[in-house]
Design a protein around this nucleic acid. Structure first.
Length: 828
RNA sequence: GCCGGGGUGGCGGAACUGGUAGACGCGCCGGACUCAAAAUCCGGUGGCCGCGAGGCCGUGUGGGUUCGACUCCCUCCCCCGGCACCA
């Protein structure tokens, strides 16, 4: 090897082989004393090559795991594949390559590539959600939820993607109501589908966020998605019928301002209450609103429309008749599907009343008269008017009191509404876990018995997108089955599960990846869960992350788990873009990591990704700094190799002068670097951690240059210790290089089991400190003083120091503030 | 409109609970080594003024609190993400 350079292409594969032979990364799940479950989100095997995003996510995550292992934790770092899903099936439709085959090929290629990263993944416990050994337990999960009443089938208006020919969960409809996968505008269809009852857990899922160490924005997204809203349901009897219209409002303090009620066109009481002479008109309006797409109906641009039903309801407090209208701006899917119209204090109601000529009655006077605009509703609080007996009261107070009155008279009650809907899990597609239900003409829905799991996907199916029927629906062989209950000819459910079901429980399965008897071992789950540290993209904030939280809680209630939350700590890696846009084949801006890795090595590429970006921010791809990082690794290698003789067995280290200024600086830098790197790695701040290590490397090169000799005595024990510290600090940053240097120091592999260096706060607390002196808030001088000098003495010295007397002149010091060991502020 | 995050040198990015803004690196400038180049090593580098000592300005805008503000409070502007006729 060249005396001045190391070759990553030689040492990286060599050490990976050694690690594998040592079986170094296989976790002892049963015997672990300090479990640290370091989990990265599944990879999706849609292509066969790794992209920059994989390296950016997984490299630093592995560096963090290595750091934890060196700190003495029993780290479990598994890796697996979310292998079911639409892209593989769409690929099959286009090319005829079976998803089973393309998926297996992609997974194999990705595993081979992932190995080049040198991460500590425990490949003995890898998972692939498309394998029967895995999805058997996904089906088990479904049946557990089904038996508990948490999985149910119902007819409902659901989102349908015409391109992908399947229904979607609400969470998969994004932006302007388009399909999350393919971007096609989705439409509403009335279909019978399977749902998971996530709404049963809405309150828990909201409250549970408080205790999680997650990024605030992710918690905010979930809060927003769950959409809790406290309000009141009020009953409005309709005289002459049995009907009682129930409305939901968050502002019962505006009850005296109600001038109409409005029902959603799909409201079930409509037929009961509509006046005979209005029937045709109302029916026409309903038909018209059904023709409108959800997008058109829910557009704020659209002018408000509605039609009078001819019916009136009785106001619960005034007993006066209130006209009942039908209006399509009222949604059947939220609240009670009916609202109280208060035009003076709700902007939508105001627009409706204005468009249809309904009266506007003001009942709240704003505190600031300027807040009341003549052409819109006033939605704030203020003083109640024209609402005897509440007139004159604060509206906040009335809100509280009127709820009590309504509750007392049985005309209303407090309630909570959620935006969250149940999780629609069935998909009319092939490449997913079949729903383990059999439809029998006599017995109805019958769960597949446990001993018949898995319900395997047939290999031989027709992928053409025909006649709105999925491949399974057209597979007579798959569908035909005898009813497990009565034995009669029955039919399998032809739908498969949303792939988010597969990934909603995999963190349990990793712990028992090979277990053929049960989904997971409860004792191991109790020991290892919740996941110590989870990492992955923020795009799953309301999908995977919310579903997993629901599944964990459901499993807890069914006695399969002892935890409330699956992921205690969470970080999101940022996105690496290219020329300002997300990388994609269609944009032609994909950056391939392969060339960089083959040019500079895996360590350099990983280190560059950690140093060049702020991990959670990401940023636009640039490679100007990668060469510098590669050079820096050479610089690290060079300084260690230059002094390797210090570590020769039997070598007696020459003591030199331990007290010199140069030695002092190196010692200080060493301890400062350890402190900084330790704190920053713990916080996933890789860029600053590396910056601190760079400072140590610079200090070492100053203290004991690679070429020539220094002007001062070299204290060899100090130099040796500092070099060892450097190698250890490099352990998580450049794993192959660090392992190589560890052996250069004459140590046995592996460095991952060497203890992380400690720092001594006493060393960092130098005897002398530099104190800044401010005069009227501006820094004017600096002075060296003994550490922890009493404040009075610091003030006295400061006012005598350098130019300070001159700057003060004969003005008396009015005030002096001392920040111990940092600065003095003199005010004149 | 509501919720969340953000705006710091030419660039990527630092700055703990208010305490010397710009760590570390890139780029650039200068120097050493070399016949020369590469590699390596050393030094400088926010802007303006000044020969210099030094001074003034500076963290999106404008104000406030404070001895002292990137940090706290208020106003506004811009960017990113989410939600949105949710009553």
């Amino acid at each position: 090897m060249d005396e001045t350079r190391y070759d990553p292409h030689q040492i990286e594969p060599r050490w990976r082989r050694v690690w594998e032979e040592m079986d170094l990364f296989r976790a002892d799940l049963e015997g672990a004393e300090r479990p640290c479950y370091a989990l990265v989100m599944f990879a999706y095997p849609s292509g066969d090559r790794l992209h920059v995003g994989h390296w950016y996510h997984y490299g630093p995550a592995d560096s963090w795991a290595r750091f934890m292992r060196m700190r003495g934790f029993d780290v479990f770092e598994p890796f697996g594949f979310d292998a079911f899903g639409l892209p593989a099936e769409n690929y099959a439709v286009r090319t005829g390559v079976h998803p089973r085959d393309s998926t297996d090929t992609n997974v194999a290629n990705m595993v081979a590539q992932l190995e080049a990263m040198g991460a500590m993944w425990d490949w003995d416990r890898t998972l692939n959600t498309s394998q029967p050994e895995y999805y058997r337990w996904t089906q088990w999960l479904f049946l557990e939820l089904y038996e508990a009443g948490l999985a149910y089938r119902k007819a409902a208006p659901v989102w349908w993607c015409p391109t992908d020919q399947t229904v979607l969960a609400n969470e998969q409809v994004v932006g302007d109501n388009v399909c999350e996968r393919c971007g096609t505008p989705v439409e509403k269809r009335d279909l019978t589908q399977w749902f998971f009852k996530i709404t049963d857990y809405a309150d828990e899922l909201l409250a549970g966020l408080e205790g999680l160490e997650w990024p605030e924005r992710t918690k905010a997204l979930q809060r927003n998605w769950i959409g809790r809203s406290e309000g009141v349901e009020i009953d409005w009897p309709v005289p002459g019928t049995d009907a009682v219209v129930r409305t939901f409002t968050t502002r019962p303090d505006t009850l005296y301002g109600v001038t109409f009620l409005a029902l959603a066109p799909e409201h079930r009481l409509l037929d009961t209450i509509v006046a005979p002479d209005r029937k045709d008109d109302v029916e026409a309006y309903r038909a018209g609103s059904r023709r409108l797409s959800e997008i058109e109906r829910s557009s704020t641009e659209k002018e408000k429309t509605g039609i009078f039903t001819g019916a009136h309801a009785v106001h619960p407090l005034t007993r006066e008749p209130v006209p009942i209208w039908v209006a399509d701006f009222v949604l059947g899917s939220y609240g009670t599907g009916a609202i109280q119209g208060v035009p003076a204090h709700d902007q939508r109601d105001w627009e409706f009343a204005t468009a249809l000529g309904l009266p506007i009655v003001k009942v709240i006077e704003p505190d600031d008269p300027a807040a009341a605009a003549p052409d819109q509703a006033y939605t704030g609080h203020g003083t109640v008017v024209d609402s005897d007996p509440y007139t004159g009261m604060r509206s906040e107070q009335m809100l509280h009191d009127v709820i009590a009155e309504l509750a007392h008279s049985g005309q209303g009650h407090k309630t909570v509404n959620y935006r969250l809907r149940d999780w629609l899990v069935s998909r009319q597609r092939y490449w997913g876990a079949p729903i383990p239900i059999i439809h029998c003409p006599t017995c109805g829905e019958v769960p597949v018995p446990q001993y018949d799991l898995p319900v395997e996907l047939p290999y031989d199916v027709d992928f053409s997108l025909g006649a709105g029927k999925s491949p399974l629906e057209r597979s007579a062989r798959f569908l035909a089955v005898d009813c497990p209950r009565c034995g009669a000819a029955a039919r399998r459910d032809a739908d498969t599960m949303d792939t988010f079901v597969d990934s909603s429980w995999y963190y349990f399965r990793y712990l028992s990846a090979d277990d053929g008897e049960r989904p997971w071992d409860r004792a191991l789950a109790d020991k290892w869960l919740p996941v110590f540290q989870y990492s992955g993209g923020i795009e799953h904030a309301v999908l995977h992350l919310l579903y997993s939280r629901f599944v964990t809680r459901a499993m807890r209630d069914l006695g399969h788990a002892g935890i409330d939350e699956p992921f205690q700590r969470l970080v999101h890696q940022g996105t690496i873009t290219s020329r300002g846009a997300k990388m994609s084949k269609s944009r032609g801006n994909v950056i391939s990591p392969d060339e960089y890795v083959s040019q500079y090595g895996a360590d350099a590429f990983r280190a560059y990704l950690m140093f060049g970006f702020s991990y959670v921010e990401g940023g636009d791809w640039k490679d100007e700094g990668i060469r510098a990082i590669a050079n820096w690794l050479q610089r690290v290698w060079r300084i260690v190799v230059r002094h390797q003789d210090l570590f020769r067995p039997g070598r007696i280290l020459h003591e030199g002068d331990p007290g010199g200024e140069a030695a002092r600086t190196l010692l200080l830098t060493r301890h400062r670097s350890v402190k900084g790197a330790t704190e920053d790695l713990a916080a996933w701040q890789f860029n600053t951690a590396i910056a601190r290590i760079m400072e140590l490397v610079n200090a070492l090169h100053h203290y004991a240059p690679v070429e020539g000799s220094p002007e001062h005595d070299v204290h060899e024990p100090l130099l040796a210790e500092s070099l060892e510290t450097l190698v250890l600090l490099m352990g998580p940053i450049a794993p192959h290089l660090a392992e190589e240097l560890w052996s250069v120091l004459g140590r046995e592999p592996s460095i991952v089991d060497a203890p992380w260096p400690a720092f001594d706060p006493a060393v960092l607390a130098t005897d002398e400190v530099t104190v800044a002196i401010q005069v009227n808030g501006k820094v004017r001088e600096e002075m060296r003083v003994p550490r922890d000098l009493p404040d009075e003495e610091v003030k006295a010295r400061a006012s005598r120091h350098g130019r300070i007397p001159e700057l003060l002149g004969d003005r008396p010091v009015r005030k002096a503030i001392v920040v111990p060991n940092k600065l003095v502020s003199l005010v004149v």
